[in-house]
Design a protein around this nucleic acid. Structure first.
Lengths: 229, 229
DNA sequence: CCGAAAAGGTGATTTATATCAGGTTTAACC
DNA sequence: GGTTAAACCTGATATAAATCACCTTTTCGG
């Protein structure tokens, strides 16, 4: 039996590519990428890269989920983004010329391909539609992050949790939200204890239901109302 | 006397261009830009563009300062960025294909040039070094904004104010920080009253000194220490 | 230069949320 | 399958910061 860790997954068969920045690739583009990349299996909670380290390339999620997070002064994580299948992780650092300012870790068992920096930049250089896709992606994320800052500054924890649960509901399509309470707290930006108490409130209000650690959304509109807006 | 509002300022004479994304432009690039752009004088507190409106082009600050801000549910401003001379404002929206998600308003009397979308995108398309500069800029800002989110989520208002004052000290080079208490509060992400009280604390601790509304930094290291590091 | 409006400031009060200090359940590993 | 650690949860308490209400100073248009 082949070692699962290194089994190559062809991009032509990758179901996640359709909703990725590589969706518009023609056959020859796919060939180039196939020969440039390496595939790897990551167990849950394995790091892809760490803050302050030098970027070596980009990570393309075939299957699984990845959290992108920074750390505050006392080491507490702040989750900035949750990346799902089809997303390319770490490409911002390809252009900034600086070390990573955030870390990336798998949230569940994942298949993730790697394309090294030179190959990736070469593809960007020679493929205008990929390039435009990336510029668009960077711009949209920048706008999203402005809203993120505003929400952090002005919304209560209760409002942020409601809004986060709706976002997570879209990230965990056709499955229950499956994050540790600590990760959830670090996404919302609060203390774990506060998060647990608020989850209980939401349960009492029949907005959500918990199945052990997993969270089911019962009333999305209700949550949106709590989130304010 | 010429109407000041429409006096053309040649890019070749623009002192702010050296520390801008257009710094690497050759003479012919500058010519193209000179004929594409229009110049305008903006009084203090005049809007460049408003949230939800359609982007028509980019704004290049020859002289002056501009605040970029979003609004929370109750309309409270959250200042996301303060742009100074040399900065190009609004170029993110050129690539996102979406309306502005933030607004931009002058903080002081300013000279600002405008380049329309088609001309700007044309320059980006034909000028790889400009393009790379923009991709780098987008990436760096994305990283900065991740830190911004983390600070909002984890730092106290006192810490954020200290850190903000240090940032503002760099923005207001060779002059005193000159922002309304409300703008400062909206930058830090707090209530105006809280901000005023904390400023008083900092005065008592001899970290800063106020000259009417203007703020002088007396002890930058002290502020950095308060900011937590 | 005057009057109105905006900005700046102070005090008292409330409250959301962090923090500390346990206790219990779940998961993981030899 | 039992032991240990990690995750989850609860309660009590402290406090940073928002809010409300008000007064004072500065700014600016006429």
């Amino acid at each position: 039996m082949l070692d699962k860790s290194y089994r190559h997954i062809g991009c032509e068969n990758c179901k996640s590519r359709n909703n990725s920045l590589f969706a518009s690739f023609c056959d020859s583009d796919v060939d180039i990428m196939n020969s440039a990349k390496t595939c790897a299996f990551y167990k849950k909670n394995q790091p892809l890269f760490l803050e302050r380290s030098a970027p070596r390339g980009v990570y393309c999620i075939n299957e699984g989920k990845v959290k992108i997070f920074g750390r505050g002064e006392e080491g507490k994580e702040q989750i900035i983004h949750l990346a799902v299948a089809g997303e390319i992780v770490g490409f911002r650092a390809m252009f900034s010329g600086e070390p990573y300012t955030v870390s990336a870790t798998t949230l569940e068992d994942s298949n993730i391909c790697f394309i090294n920096k030179a190959d990736f930049l070469d593809m960007v250089d020679t493929n205008p539609s990929l390039r435009n896709g990336i510029m668009k992606e960077l711009s949209i994320e920048l706008a999203e992050r402005a809203t993120f800052v505003t929400n952090m500054a002005q919304k209560s924890v209760r409002e942020r949790l409601a809004s986060s649960l709706v976002i997570l509901n879209d990230i965990y399509t056709n499955e229950l939200i499956n994050l540790s309470r600590e990760d959830l707290a670090n996404f919302v930006g609060t203390a774990t204890e506060t998060l647990i108490r608020l989850l209980k409130d939401f349960k009492d209000e029949e907005l959500i239901k918990t199945h052990a650690r997993k969270i089911e959304i019962l009333n999305k509109d209700g949550l949106l109302k709590v989130a304010g807006g």
